[in-house]
Design a protein around this nucleic acid. Structure first.
Length: 578
RNA sequence: GCCCCCUUAGCUCAGUUGGAUAGAGCAUCGGACUUCUAAUCCGAGGGUCAGAGGUUCAAAUCCUCUAGGGGGUACCA
């Protein structure tokens, strides 16, 4: 679509006496599609020309000479509205999509640049809560989107597997034991033990001390501590992998904080060498008071490392070993200060690449507190956070039931139910701006109607279904000028802007831009489709009119391609039937 | 206290770089299946864009203040 803006600027450049580069950014999209494809507002000319913008628009509409693909210009109040040639547009857009197929939407502005994305990053010894879907799927979508735009991307699942909590967990294991005969999965028992350890530490100082001691042993490499801890990690990873498998998510690296433990002293030494580290209240810190921030803690009074220390060692490792150009942290907004501190420390240390590290914040998942009725941050500890697995299972159950009722003969129904259930949960999370807080509402997630994953999937399945029923026409050149209905014109234009939409999502690190665009395409297509219910003349397949069938099938195929490509970027599966 | 984010229809949210009449979905009400998949579509009602100032030819959008909600604020991650 950018190329067409250029063509319109070309028409204007002579009359305005301005180069096309200054005209292109002034072009707008009219609020009504029927008015045209692009609008040029005449307000800014009013001063210089000392005329009312309405007059200027009317005058320009008279005198401009148009060249293909610009088909028409009309003054509409203070705006000059340009309409592109449908025939040319349809041909170019649909041919491009047919030619590029699953590559449509890709670009190369990221070629040669490497991005490391830190996402998902759950803590071990706990089940994945619903809120983990956010970092996991936003990160996954960003990875796909950036790859589509030519970046080389490596994902790292930075497991929270190190720190005092795991000393406490070992202490709890020692004190309370493990029930091998328990009739629950290991992860469930481990999660319960974790909760018990935290609670015990609050009321029993001796236990808390034992926990800290175990963590010191762990850091010192004590074999017994290591063995227990390793087992906790393994149980957790086995559980995480089940959910990641269901979501279709994988990582290039799953290193975890523990991996960077040997690098932490070096990281501190590095900062000390640059004169940044001071001692304060018995702890090692980088003072950030000059920047209105609390100090960045590197070592506690007891010598144990912290979250910041590990993130510091991690980013230094990533830069050194993976040589990223950009490092993205897909972590909730609650940690903004932590990342501001981290990046400031890197900057103060003189690493010019600190400017290429970015926190990609997203809103919290709020749960309704049953007592106060208020929306607040969910907590696995307080037991008021839903498990991701549970929500996914509920969504799959919804899909299964719906299909049993509406499409009982569907082959591979269980697979499709999984795809639809997962799609419902994932799309629900990605369709809105990532910085918004999310009010957890399972009923809304399970509703397959309206602006939902199942709606997107259903639309794609409709395309697949009609294309499967269409006669073989691969060798026939479609007559694009037959696509003259308003819905067809609108669809072609939305398909045309898809690559720019993906580029925008990559630039702003915002997957919802893609989701919203796909929703708009699906809405147009479904509207288009339903017109054929009443009026057989407007159906895609016209046994009585081969030319129309070919042209409409070409449009349908393009819609399907874009929906599939876009859903792939978002991590939403696209079954061909449901 | 200080810092960050949010506030658009009953509910959940879109709203491009400031641009023309602020749009969807859910819910409610009324319609459309002898059909290319009705998980769809069409229509209706529903708005002081939290409030007040300011900048501008033009503000939901930018600035200031106020109110309400969420989060954070050195030894948790």
């Amino acid at each position: 679509m950018e190329a067409y803006k250029e063509a319109i600027a070309e028409c204007l450049t002579e009359s305005l006496g301005q180069p096309t580069e200054t005209i292109v950014p002034m072009l707008r999209i009219p609020p009504e599609a029927a008015w045209g494809d692009f609008a040029f507002p005449c307000f800014t000319l009013a001063k210089a020309w000392r005329q009312a913008p309405q007059q200027i628009a009317a005058q320009l509409a008279q005198q401009l000479t148009l060249a293909a693909p610009v088909a028409a210009v009309a003054a509409h109040g203070p705006y000059l509205n340009f309409t592109l040639d449908d025939d040319i547009l349809s041909r170019e857009v649909l041919q491009t999509i047919a030619r590029e197929g699953e590559r449509y939407g890709r670009g190369d502005e990221g070629r040669g640049k490497k991005v490391v994305i830190d996402y998902s990053s759950p803590n071990i010894a706990k089940e994945l809560a619903f809120h983990h879907v956010r970092s996991t799927m936003i990160g996954h979508a960003l990875k796909q989107i950036l790859e589509a735009r030519g970046y080389t991307v490596e994902g790292d699942n930075h497991l929270g597997d190190w720190g005092t909590p795991f000393g406490l967990l070992i202490a709890a294991y020692e004190r309370f034991g493990w029930d091998d005969a328990a009739d629950v999965e290991d992860i469930v028992q481990l999660n319960a033990l974790y909760v018990r350890a935290r609670n015990e530490a609050k009321v029993d100082a001796g236990f808390a001390a034992a926990g800290r001691h175990w963590f010191q042993r762990l850091e010192a490499g004590d074999p017994q501590a290591r063995k227990r801890w390793r087992w906790f990690v393994d149980v957790s990873l086995a559980e995480f992998d089940k959910v990641y498998g269901l979501l279709g998510v994988s990582f290039e690296h799953t290193l975890g904080e523990s991996f960077f433990e040997p690098y932490m002293d070096d990281a501190i030494t590095e900062l000390q060498g640059r004169g940044l580290v001071t001692e304060s209240q018995g702890a090692l810190v980088v003072d950030l008071s000059a920047y209105d921030m609390p100090p960045c803690l590197l070592k506690k009074q007891d010598g144990a490392t912290l979250y910041s220390t590990r993130d510091l060692a991690t980013v230094l490792y990533r830069k050194r070993e993976w040589r990223f150009d950009t490092c993205l942290y897909v972590v909730d907004m609650g940690q903004s200060l932590h990342f501001a501190q981290l990046f400031k420390v890197l900057e103060l240390a003189g690493f010019e690449w600190a400017a290429n590290c970015h926190h990609i914040p997203f809103g919290l998942v709020l749960q309704r507190n049953p007592e106060s009725g208020k929306w607040e941050k969910g907590s696995t500890r307080q037991g008021n956070a839903s498990l991701l697995k549970t929500v996914l299972e509920a969504a799959i159950g919804m899909a299964r039931e719906k299909m049993a009722a509406s499409n009982p003969d569907l082959p591979d129904a269980e697979l499709v139910a999984r795809q639809v259930g997962v799609g419902a949960v994932v799309f629900n999370d990605l369709k809105n701006r990532r910085t918004r807080d999310v009010k957890f509402d399972q009923e809304a997630i399970l509703n397959p109607q309206g602006e939902t994953g199942p709606y997107m999937q259903y639309t794609q399945a409709r395309c697949a279904s009609v294309l499967a029923a269409a006669p073989e026409t691969a060798s026939v050149e479609p007559l694009y000028e037959l696509l003259q209905q308003p819905e067809e014109r609108a669809l072609v234009r939305k398909l045309a802007t898809y690559p720019a939409v993906v580029a925008e999502a990559a630039r702003t690190w915002e997957p919802s831009v893609v989701a919203q665009h796909l929703l708009a395409i699906a809405a147009d297509f479904n509207s288009y489709w339903t017109r054929g219910n009443k009026d057989p003349g407007r159906r895609i397949l016209r046994p009585d009119a081969a030319d129309l069938t070919v042209a409409r099938a070409a449009l349908t195929a393009a819609v399907r391609t874009v929906l599939c490509n876009g859903l792939k970027l978002l991590g939403v599966p696209a079954p061909d039937a449901m």
